[in-house]
Design a protein around this nucleic acid. Structure first.
Length: 486
RNA sequence: GGCCCGUUCGUCUAGCGGUUAGGACACCGCCCUCUCAAGGCGGAGAUCACGGGUUCGAAUCCCGUACGGGCUACCA
């Protein structure tokens, strides 16, 4: 059992928190919680062109909404900050110095054109490395002279001479090995003095005491490069766990074309954070052969790196939607009433105060809607008829009200509703059920006629409960209005 | 081109030498039923990418091949 676990999620604020990033965050979070460790949020905003404050905020907002709380990071503080890469410049300069002292970095004065040519040549030859390491051979005094003269240069990592294969045991993929000869003396500091990704990542992870690096598959091939830096710095190499990517339905990178990709977009479509977490967790991880529904506590309790699957997963919106429906149905009624507030409010149907004032009425409405809704945004259209005047839709009129006997049925229904003694679903049902035998009409015709009159549609929540919730006065009015409109 | 990773129903997955290859979503049928749902029951759907080995026995181990993906940037 791992101890003193410290993991991090390091999104780049070049966009919103998307499904793939969210899964990385969920796995890191669950792992930290599972072993009582720290979950650190670090913002990789070293790309000033594409990074924005808005994105950083949106990412944190999405994480909070998902309930992924971080122990250290922006707004949370911590002793290994700053947690914005853009504020860690001095640490990176120090890192380079350490590399130079260790003899693991050297300046390179080669021009981009030279490098380009070398790359092409190396590729044509079919060999390993591309950079010929010319500057690594430069005499010390020449290097000093050119540096002093202010000649443009980058800093490269010196892959140790005679280094054997770089091997590590990935927590999800098992032993992985890369030939050292395949490693270039890659650039760790650009000519403008800024560090490159493979270098900063190690500086930050080492500096923050990260013990387990759980991240996307796309970083697997970067890992040996990073290990070289840990070794040069004399820092302990963390455990790596590379999970596969999430693809769209066509097997291509998940993008806008596959529908929403951002977590906040799912929030806005009426998905519940618990459902999203559950679904996302299952995209590349499993508890056993049967469990598909589990709460957060179970996720934390069962989470294990070695149960992360090696193959990529395709995001299936249908399954997410099904799962969201399950969570909606499982919600305690009072909780659902609270959840409904923003949705009804946004639709202009009921304010938070309205809902608080008539809590019992909304509680009665709850089972009617939870059973037939998979997303919160479906609620408003389904219950609109209870709040606003209706307009009978054309197909319902045609299919139901135009039928022979519909008028008779409505006339009888109006009378029956007026006569109901205790205004409740059972009494209403009894009264309406008396109509078909009395008029020798088919029950379905009668029910549907009343439904269309009351809701304006041939599809609605259960009729008698709906009538009960609408109230006697408005129900009778609507039945009469429908009758008059035939 | 080189290096690395992956490949079980349409999809997510279980499986870690001996199973009728299990579950979930989606799909189809039946039941329930005032519509729609929800629910219950059942069904179809996987020659475990392919080819060689190893073994009494392979989805499981080994080697190839194919296909997909990642990395190979002064992006992250």
């Amino acid at each position: 059992m791992p101890e003193n676990v410290r993991v991090r999620f390091a999104p780049s604020p070049t966009g919103h928190l998307h499904i793939g990033g969210a899964r990385t965050a969920v796995y890191n979070w669950a792992f930290a919680r599972r072993y009582g460790g720290q979950f650190i949020l670090r913002i990789d905003d070293t790309d000033p062109e594409r990074s924005t404050q808005e994105n950083t905020e949106a990412i944190m907002r999405a994480m909070r909404w998902l309930g992924l709380d971080w122990d250290e990071g922006p707004e949370a503080g911590g002793s290994s900050g700053p947690y914005l890469q853009s504020e860690r410049g001095p640490l990176y300069r120090d890192g380079l110095l350490r590399m130079i002292e260790a003899g693991a970095a050297y300046p390179c004065f080669c021009s981009t054109e030279e490098l380009e040519a070398q790359r092409e040549a190396a590729r044509a030859e079919g060999g390993y490395a591309t950079y010929d390491r010319a500057c690594r051979q430069l005499a010390k005094d020449e290097v000093k002279a050119r540096l002093d003269a202010g000649e443009a240069h980058v800093w490269r990592l010196a892959v140790p001479e005679g280094r054997g294969d770089i091997m590590f045991t990935d927590a999800v993929r098992g032993p992985v090995s890369f030939p050292a000869e395949a490693m270039d003396d890659y650039i760790i500091v650009r000519s403008d003095g800024t560090p490159t990704y493979n270098f900063v990542t190690v500086l930050d992870d080492a500096g923050m005491g990260i013990t387990h690096v759980i991240r996307g598959d796309d970083h697997l091939a970067n890992t040996p490069r990073q290990i070289l830096v840990y070794e040069a710095l004399g820092e302990p190499v963390p455990t790596f766990a590379h999970m596969s990517m999430i693809w769209g339905s066509d097997g291509k990178r998940l993008s806008k074309r596959h529908g929403a990709t951002s977590v906040e977009a799912y929030r806005d479509m009426g998905y519940l954070p618990d459902a999203l977490i559950n679904y996302i967790a299952l995209l590349g991880w499993s508890i056993d052969d049967k469990t598909t529904l589990f709460d957060r506590a179970t996720l934390v309790e069962k989470f294990a790196l070695d149960r992360i699957s090696k193959n990529p997963a395709i995001f299936d919106p249908d399954k997410l939607e099904w799962m969201n429906g399950v969570y909606i149905r499982d919600m305690p009624p009072q909780a659902f009433v609270h959840q409904m507030v923003p949705w009804l409010d946004a639709a202009g149907l009921a304010s938070a105060d309205d809902i608080a004032d008539r809590n019992d009425w909304f509680l009665a409405l709850t089972p009617l809607v939870t059973e037939r809704v998979k997303r919160m945004d479906e609620i408003a259209p389904m219950v609109r008829f209870l709040f606003e005047d209706i307009e009978i839709d054309d197909t319902a009129r045609e299919k139901v009200l135009a039928k022979e006997g519909a008028g008779e049925a409505l006339r009888a229904a109006a009378d029956a509703l007026r006569a109901v003694e205790d205004w409740n679903p059972a009494a209403i049902e009894a009264a309406i059920r008396d109509i078909p035998p009395a008029l020798d009409l088919k029950p379905k015709l009668v029910f549907q006629a009343v439904r269309v009159a009351i809701t304006g549609s041939a599809v609605s929540p259960p009729l008698f409960e709906s009538v009960a919730l609408l109230g006697r006065e408005r129900s009778v009015e609507r039945v009469e209005a429908a009758l008059a409109s035939i």
